[in-house]
Each structure stands twice: as C-alpha cells, then as structure tokens.
Design a protein around this nucleic acid. Structure first.
Lengths: 127, 127
DNA sequence: AGCACGTTCACGTGGCGTGAGGGTCC
DNA sequence: AGGACCCTCACGCCACGTGAACGTGC
C-alpha cells in the first residue's frame, strides 16, 4: 500500500491540518466526497491522500465558489482529463515504438536480400 | 457562418423555448455564461447555439444542483475533454499514417534493389 | 473520569431565481 | 401610444458552514 494511503489522523487533527471545521469534514463524508477509514470503534482516520482531496475541495469551494454538487462533478471530470492525458502519452510512446518496429522488420529483409554493395547508396551505419 | 450561430430570438422567446425566466437569462449573461448578440438598439438576440448552451446550464443547475460557479468550471472542463478526445482521434489516424509512410519508404528501396524473383518469398500483392 | 469522538438539530449567511419599478426603443 | 425591451433593487428560498446538545468510545 502507498504510504499516502495509510490512515493516520483523527478528525480534529485532520481538520486542523487543512484548516477546516471538523463538522465540515463529516458533511463531506456524508455527501461521498471523502471516504476516511474507520477504527473498529467508529473513529474516522484520514490519510494523506484524503487530506489532498480535502484541500482540493477547499480550493474549489472557497477560491472558486463552487457548491458541493459542483465539486463532485468537477473532481470526476478532472479524473477523466488526467486519464486521457496519460492515455495520450501512452499512445505517443506506442506510436514511436510501432514505427521503430516497422523499421526493424524491413531491416531484417534488407539483410536477407542485400544487393551488391556498390549499388547501395550511402546510409548511416546502424551495426 | 453556421446556421446555428445566426442570432434569431429576442429574450422573451428564447426564455420561452428553454423554459426559463427572462431575468435568469440576463443574469447568465452578466456572469459570462452566454453571450447573445445585440441589435443596435441593445435588444439581445439568441442563436440556436446559445439555446443549446442554456439547456446545458439548465441541466447542470436543476438536475445536478450545481451553482453558477460550478457551471462555468464544468463547461470549461468539458471543452477540454472534448478537445482531448479529438486530439486522441487525430493522433490515432496520424499513427496509422506514419506506419504506412515507413512501409512505403522501404518499398521504394525494395523496388530499387529487387533481388532475383526466385529468391523473393510469397507476399500479398499490393498493386 | 474526562476528553474527543459520534450523531442530530438549529441558526446565519450568501447565492440564485423571481418579480416589481422605472426608463428607452420600435 | 403601447408593448417588450433595457437595468436596478428587493424579497424568498435553499445550500452550506458553524455551533450546541447529548450520547459513546478510549
């Protein structure tokens, strides 16, 4: 498990760290915006990742003035954007790899059917 | 100009068509959510595309419960998502094209230095 | 035993929709 | 001249944050 996912802080500490009212954190959990772990006794334990999320919510509400319905929607959309970004990057790498692959396949054929050397134009040696 | 961009309806008609209060449409314009054309006299004229946008806002506010700050943010994010989607598609096409390009370049060489036909393995004819 | 946790309820503020009042354009 | 436009102001409702009351876990 990532260390940022380890449940660490009870609600008063977590609220302190992000500068919010503990009751506010409970409201956010009711709305499904954060899902802190619970001890067997029922006490909430917030991970670093939970705190990140809380700070994101804080930015959207206090700086940009969104309500909680908007926060929910925006967080989901941002997930989608990030997912697409990494998909784009993956595809870029894949594209380069595919082109390289084609090159290689033809190099094999060229070796197989090499013409007399005096007819081959100058070309960078690739070992 | 796209016919959906032609300014057509004054505010009372537009409000009727989307089922909103005219005053609400003015508020949305003040917040920069829609930008209807104006006649020289100052009367707002809404295009079909403006109506689309109004219906999108209506969905986000009444169905999902966002406030206007959230609507603004979400519309921008959705633009971003759509942009990335078309970029992904463009890149897919580009990738296929690039691979094809490499194939072609090697085919030119293969024509140039064709080995005796009896040594060429069977391969699909490409005309 | 005491403190911080849990939940539920009440209050205040602010955002947003709706409507009225008064001026202007066609 | 009248009706629909323009703008500004006022009211009401609801969401959200904050706090209090009261019970429970450590």
């Amino acid at each position: 498990m990532d260390t940022r996912d380890r449940p660490m802080y009870m609600i008063s500490v977590a609220a302190d760290l992000v500068g919010m009212h503990p009751q506010t954190l409970r409201i956010y959990e009711n709305k499904g915006l954060v899902r802190p772990q619970r001890t067997p006794g029922g006490t909430r334990l917030y991970s670093e990742r939970d705190l990140d999320r809380l700070r994101a919510i804080q930015y959207l509400t206090t700086e940009l003035g969104l309500n909680l319905a908007g926060v929910e929607h925006v967080l989901r959309l941002q997930d989608e954007v990030n997912q697409m970004k990494s998909r784009l990057e993956r595809m870029e790498r894949e594209m380069r790899r595919a082109v390289e692959e084609v090159h290689k396949s033809y190099k094999r054929e060229l070796v197989l059917y090499r013409p007399p050397t005096e007819l081959v134009p100058q070309r960078k040696r690739t070992n």
